[in-house]
Amino acid sequence: MKALTRKTTRTVGTEPWHSYAWQAQSLLLAYPDERFEQRLDLADRVAATLPGPVARPLLRFTTHAEQTATAQLATAYVATFDHRKRCCPYLTYYAHGDTRKRGTALLRLKQTYAAAGWRLGDDELPDHLAVVLEFAAADPGAGARLLIEHRAGLELLRLALSDEGSPWASVLESVSATLPALAGDEREAVMRLAADGPPEEQVGLDSYASPVFLPDPVVGGPR
């Protein structure tokens, strides 16, 4: 992605520390590759500067990751995010499934990024949570709106990871702590999605690969 200049003015609806929280969360939700230890160290140092409800779950994850071999984490990452649909990290999936409407939602996200000067790689889908968080870190106002727009999916992912006993549930708990408390209609949206699941129509996604077959995104700073 192209480098973006971090905004120095305060954005309505966000706090200055939101950018750092979202960047740290993005680093920890990326695939644990050979650079993961560096990302982990940075996220650990950032977490120590954040408010308690955001920092504590992040530090739970970093403590676990520091005590786990990177190869073991990578295996768990694939087993969790690639092989369990209910733990899908692609946010538009929760509302639209693999339908034509999801294709439109993905295009909207790409257009939002492009308007901010970002260009996604060909192997990246714009709705992967790590990518959305990275964007939010660089453009807090627009990023916060995207996260709130996909709040129901975020909460479903958090609950699914928690049910699985996944260490990444702590990272999702930290993400939720950066957002406003759930309003009544948002709670209803979460309950509806949990009850009904995403649509199953398999059309309209010719220009996007299925998330199951995508290579793991490499995130962690503008590219």
Rank of each mutant, 00 (worst) to 15 (best):
L179D: 02
T104I: 09
A74C: 08
D44W: 06
G153M: 01
V46E: 01
T68F: 05
E66Q: 13
D123N: 13
L58G: 00
A144T: 09
Y93T: 01
D163L: 14
P89Q: 11
A142S: 13
M1C: 13
V171G: 01
A48S: 04
A43L: 05
A183W: 15
I148C: 09
E124R: 03
V219T: 10
K110Y: 07
E173F: 05
T63A: 14
S26K: 05
G153E: 02
M191R: 15
R119F: 04
D139I: 13
V132W: 01
Q202W: 10
E37H: 11
V212D: 09
K110W: 07
T68W: 04
V190I: 14
R6S: 10
L27Q: 04
P167V: 10
F213M: 11
L120H: 04
V219M: 03
R100W: 12
P140T: 10
Q72T: 15
A21R: 01
A69H: 11
D123A: 15
Y31M: 07
V54T: 03
V78N: 03
P140H: 09
S170I: 10
W118A: 06
A116S: 14
A177G: 06
A152T: 07
L146G: 01
T80N: 01
R192A: 15
K110R: 14
L120K: 02
R100G: 02
A79F: 05
A3W: 07
L91Y: 02
P211G: 12
L28S: 09
A95K: 11
T112N: 05
G97N: 08
K2I: 12
G143W: 04
L159V: 10
H128M: 06
D44F: 06
L172A: 10
R10P: 03
A169C: 12
M191K: 12
Y31P: 00
H18F: 07
P215C: 10
S26D: 04
T49P: 00
V131G: 01
P167H: 00
H64T: 15
L40T: 02
D122E: 12
W17T: 02
M1N: 09
L40D: 01
T112H: 03
L27F: 06
L133W: 00
